Amino acid sequence: MKKRKIPMRKDIVTGEMAPKKELVRIVRDTDGNVSIDETGKKSGRGAYISIDVEVAKKAKAEHVFEKAFSTQLNDSFYDDLIAYVDHKQARKELFENGQ
């Protein structure tokens, strides 16, 4: 059976390459709105961050997405991002340990 290629993406905070499934996509649409792309298929400019709470906190401290998307973001966006990443990290740990 043919081995499938695993799509790799670069984490915008750490600069490390990782499989796309292990990252969260943040997208800026054509109207300039920045949001978390849960499906990974929204149209617009995307940037990726690892599913790690410490990396999300570092992104907030350094205002990484403001620099990447050349826009102003509220702290509430980063708080939502940290909560989302925390949830994804907990699910990942739960289901990996369960198998």
Score class of each variant (00 low, 15 high):
96 E>H: 12
44 G>M: 04
7 P>G: 12
88 K>V: 04
84 Y>T: 14
38 E>Q: 13
83 A>V: 03
14 T>F: 01
11 D>V: 04
30 T>L: 08
77 F>I: 09
2 K>D: 13
42 K>T: 03
78 Y>L: 08
43 S>P: 02
92 K>M: 08
83 A>W: 01
51 I>R: 10
26 I>P: 06
85 V>M: 09
52 D>A: 12
62 E>M: 08
37 D>E: 09
4 R>H: 09
97 N>S: 15
20 K>N: 06
14 T>S: 14
1 M>S: 14
40 G>I: 03
99 Q>C: 08
71 T>E: 04
58 K>M: 09
8 M>C: 01
70 S>A: 13
36 I>D: 11
23 L>I: 00
65 F>I: 05
85 V>S: 08
9 R>V: 11
85 V>F: 02
47 A>N: 10
43 S>Q: 11
57 K>C: 05
91 R>N: 15
40 G>K: 05
54 E>C: 02
45 R>H: 05
90 A>D: 12
75 D>W: 01
62 E>T: 12
84 Y>N: 10
1 M>N: 10
15 G>M: 04
81 L>D: 03
90 A>L: 10
96 E>R: 15
36 I>N: 11
51 I>Y: 00
84 Y>S: 11
89 Q>E: 15
23 L>G: 03
12 I>S: 10
79 D>R: 08
35 S>M: 09
87 H>E: 15
92 K>E: 03
21 K>P: 00
37 D>T: 05
5 K>Q: 10
92 K>R: 15
60 K>G: 07
98 G>K: 11
19 P>L: 06
13 V>F: 01
71 T>Y: 02
82 I>G: 08
86 D>S: 15
30 T>E: 14
7 P>Y: 00
47 A>R: 09
72 Q>R: 15
59 A>W: 02
49 I>W: 01
96 E>A: 15
62 E>H: 06
36 I>G: 09
86 D>G: 15
68 A>L: 04
62 E>Q: 13
94 L>C: 03
31 D>A: 10
79 D>I: 00
44 G>C: 05
13 V>D: 03
51 I>L: 08
96 E>N: 15
48 Y>R: 10
8 M>Q: 12
37 D>S: 08
7 P>M: 07
61 A>K: 14
75 D>I: 03
44 G>E: 02
37 D>L: 07
85 V>T: 06
